[in-house]
Nucleic acid binder design. Structure first.
Lengths: 199, 199
DNA sequence: CTGATTTCTTGATTTATATCAAGACCCATC
DNA sequence: GATGGGTCTTGATATAAATCAAGAAATCAG
């Protein structure tokens, strides 16, 4: 029991560290409040974190492992993003605006999460007045990343997108099936493979 | 003088209407505060609202006219978006995080704006406690739109992107040079033209 | 109205990328 | 260490889209 406590404590610290780095300085008491709302859980390789069309009623922090976010269209899976340690995962449209989820999110490996339920998530804003502002800045940061990603699709070839992504995410290349990276970069596995050989 | 007053009043009401529709209900007094911080101005066709690398110190509402947001890479202009009446325009990365702007924003037609300066913009959050939350929701909505736009690039052909965009923005097609629409949809003007003929 | 620019279209060609199909590799499991 | 399922690579071919070049149409300025 003590072991588990120590174990959890250490992991919680990590969540805290990420919250600090994403949201900036938060009062120690507020941090305690926020952290206490996140509950640890695990999800096994292949299991679903969220299925499309369902309502997403949670937001999770990835402590370890990998989640893949994708959509099925015309019988094909289109991978939108792969989230690793340190990411927050949810369908924003679903948790904020109560819309059915657009994505399916599935574990690529056994994954440790800290999860906050929607009700508790909505409480944070009431408990911590500063919260909405911090979250606004966080979402703005995400928005800017997507703007850049769109720009990449407007102005770069498949090979340039590969190079750019590879520079920033070398580690992912030996952790996930490459076909998923191909998809999220907007090319086929064959094209991805040929580019990879060249470079 | 009276004429101008009436004129402005009517236009202000429009800004108010848009703020309401984007941000939800705001207390009448708060609305008055917000509106009072926006000052009318105009910008002539071809003039720049913002140049890339400069710092963006304002946020504007488009009362009438068209602004194009683009980047120059390899001597080519890549149009990222075209904003019309009812849009808010700024470089988020620049106004929120004090970064140099990534985009150039230029008027495609004479354009009427209501503009709030950065300092005043930052004040709103202090004057109206609820503001950060409303703005968070607004930015989240923008984020969701970009997610969908990325999905379009991952899963659709040039023709499908054309069709989809055309359905939602028929009006734009006879207001702006089509080459800019081509660019923001990620294709050449020639490809755009051929698709257009077919359909 | 007229000439000058800019924008759009069209055709010919090239290039990038997708598709199809087969085989190789990898690695987990018995 | 064989079997099998998933994954990756490779080659041949088809298709989508870019490029290049020229002319047509639209727009703008005087």
């Amino acid at each position: 029991m003590l072991l588990i406590y120590v174990f959890n404590h250490k992991k919680m610290t990590e969540l805290e560290r990420y919250i600090k780095s994403y949201f900036g300085i938060v009062q120690p008491n507020d941090m305690k409040t926020i952290i206490s709302l996140f509950k640890p859980s695990t999800i096994k390789k292949g299991e679903y974190f969220l299925k499309s069309e369902h309502f997403c009623d949670k937001l999770s922090f990835i402590q370890s492992g990998l989640l893949r976010m994708f959509v099925v269209t015309d019988g094909k899976e289109v991978t939108q993003w792969i989230s690793t340690k340190g990411y927050f995962v949810t369908d924003l449209a679903s948790i904020i605006f109560d819309l059915p989820s657009r994505w399916t999110i599935q574990a690529l490996t056994d994954t440790e999460l800290f999860t906050i339920q929607k009700d508790d998530y909505k409480k944070i804003g009431k408990l911590i007045p500063q919260w909405h502002e911090l979250e606004k800045l966080f979402i703005a940061r995400c928005f800017i990343i997507l703007e850049d990603r769109i720009f990449m699709h407007l102005s770069m070839t498949a090979e340039e997108r590969y190079q750019f992504f590879f520079e920033q995410n070398k580690d992912l290349f030996n952790q996930v099936p490459l076909q998923y990276l191909a998809s999220m970069l907007g090319m086929t596995p064959e094209t991805f493979s040929r580019i990879r050989r060249k470079t």
